[in-house]
């Protein structure tokens, strides 16, 4: 009989998780950024804030691979220390939106009716404003700084997660396994959290990864505009802003943090793509 051997092959392929190259690349990129963020003092060759007037505006060299800025600070060290701030930005601009948006989406999707109507109106109001304009307006109201930026982005960002999860829950709750759960007499919270969410959350997780890249971009934009991280904090957007006056004479000051943002963005995208494959149920 062929059936047992077939089953055996399937079981072994399930236990041996095969990672795609893109996912490995994503893990490597984000992993190294996380290491930089956790122990920048061990990775960076120089201090990110110490001035060295002996080495001002030096082009990339072996001593300073990314060159130095107008205060003689090592750009490589600043980019590495910047990872600490920007990874924080990536996490804290998205963590609350992910958790809260998922919960709101699950509740509105499952219960519908007036809860859904209220959520729908809030979505209508928020989506009429361009995202960045709304965030800048809230930051302007609260005052510049990282914490206020987290508040502003969180206040707006959960909407997207809410819509994503709500849509998924709407389809999942009509699936017969969800109906079976109701006939089995399970409580609504058991059905939502044990049955529906595990099957509905994948798009939100994948979007979360992309959103981290967008969060870094947003944080850098606000840093550049002077509304996010404040100088002399080494934050990628702030470093780019520092270098903007020297673009023609010292291109390396703005270019390397810009590349760091790009690499982080690619890393999160690859991670998101890979996770999407990994989290998709089989069969």
């Amino acid at each position: 009989m062929a059936a047992p051997s077939l089953v055996a092959a399937q079981t072994s392929s399930r236990t041996r998780v095969r990672l795609k190259p893109s996912l490995i690349a994503g893990i490597v990129i984000i992993g190294s950024l996380v290491i930089m963020a956790l122990v920048p003092n061990l990775v960076a060759p120089y201090s990110p804030t110490n001035f060295d007037y002996q080495a001002v505006l030096q082009a990339p060299s072996i001593k300073h691979p990314f060159g130095t800025d107008n205060f003689g600070r090592d750009v490589l060290s600043r980019v590495i220390w910047g990872a600490q701030v920007d990874m924080q930005i990536a996490l804290f601009t998205t963590l609350f939106p992910f958790v809260f948006g998922t919960l709101v989406g699950a509740m509105t999707g499952y219960y519908g009716r007036w809860l859904d109507a209220i959520f729908g109106r809030i979505v209508d109001i928020v989506v009429t404003f361009p995202f960045l304009v709304l965030v800048i307006a809230i930051v302007a109201l609260l005052g510049p700084g990282l914490n206020n930026m987290f508040i502003a982005v969180s206040a707006v960002g959960w909407i997207t997660y809410g819509r994503l999860v709500r849509g998924e829950i709407l389809t999942q709750k009509k699936a017969e396994y969800a109906l079976a759960g109701r006939v089995m007499g399970y409580t609504a919270s058991r059905i939502i959290f044990r049955h529906l969410l595990p099957n509905a959350i994948t798009p939100a997780v994948v979007y979360w990864m992309t959103d981290m890249a967008l969060g870094i971009l947003l944080g850098s934009s606000l840093g550049y505009l002077g509304l996010g991280a404040q100088p002399p904090t080494a934050e990628w957007g702030v470093i780019i802003a520092d270098g903007k006056n020297f673009m023609t004479t010292a291109w390396w000051i703005s270019t390397f943090p810009g590349l760091a943002i790009t690499v982080a963005g690619i890393g999160f995208s690859l991670l998101g793509d890979g996770l999407a494959d990994l989290l998709r149920p089989k069969g």
Partner: peptide
């Protein structure tokens, strides 16, 4: 009370593919 009614009256569903939670 509804739960204990459903314990006595159960249902088997039509679709062999969607009637089971793919993750359990």
């Amino acid at each position: 009370n509804l739960r204990s009614y459903n314990r006595r009256v159960q249902m088997v569903f039509q679709d062999p593919f969607s009637s089971l939670n793919p993750r359990m």
